[in-house]
């Protein structure tokens, strides 16, 4: 499951840009952005990753009524999930004994993303493959492609992510 629509909010762009330490006014200042080359606020290049916020089943966000695997009264709120979660937005999640991590991310930009528009997402699974890891046993790779289209149906961004699942905790 993934978000099917991603409404782009100016406030969301602002907090995302702050989080990556980018204080470029084109991400938050209406007047300066209007006078810039792009004639208005735009989203930073990796912003579409935040469409996870609109994924109703996103496994890396606490959900109402579902035990969360982070700490509370105890170091983890539930035993590790034996099944690999489908991390459609490409981020990692925990596994029994092993660790799922984001291995690669690639974007193609057809045009800037702007506040006020609603992007429609189309997800398609990509390739899967295995590789012997140097430190973590067998590595399982899975590729996911998400197309982000504007209200005119035209492509705005294509995101291709590769997730990797290992059999043991990765030691740096």
């Amino acid at each position: 499951m993934t978000a099917s629509q991603f409404p782009i909010g100016a406030g969301h762009i602002m907090v995302f840009a702050r989080a990556i330490g980018d204080f470029n006014p084109v991400y938050h200042d209406v007047d300066q952005a209007r006078e810039s080359e792009v004639h208005g606020i735009i989203a930073p290049p990796t912003f579409v990753q935040a469409s996870a916020q609109y994924d109703p089943d996103y496994p890396l966000r606490p959900q109402p009524g579902v035990p969360w695997f982070g700490s509370g009264r105890t170091p983890t709120g539930k035993p590790p999930n034996p099944e690999p979660a489908t991390t459609t937005q490409g981020s990692g999640s925990e596994r029994s004994g092993g660790t799922g991590l984001h291995a690669e991310q690639h974007y193609e930009y057809l045009r800037p993303v702007r506040p006020g528009e609603v992007l429609t997402l189309t997800l398609r699974p990509g390739r899967t493959w295995e590789k012997q890891g140097r430190r973590g046993g067998l590595l399982y790779f899975r590729e996911t492609v998400i197309e982000y289209r504007g209200e005119d149906g035209e492509l705005a961004v294509i995101a291709r992510s590769v997730g990797v699942r290992t059999e043991q905790t990765v030691k740096d």
Binding site: V15, F16, D55, S91
Partner: peptide
Amino acid sequence: GASGDFNPLHTDEVYATQVA
């Protein structure tokens, strides 16, 4: 908070150290 990825490996020192 901005991206929506609240994986405790990134957000929860107790979980990251004691569980993971």
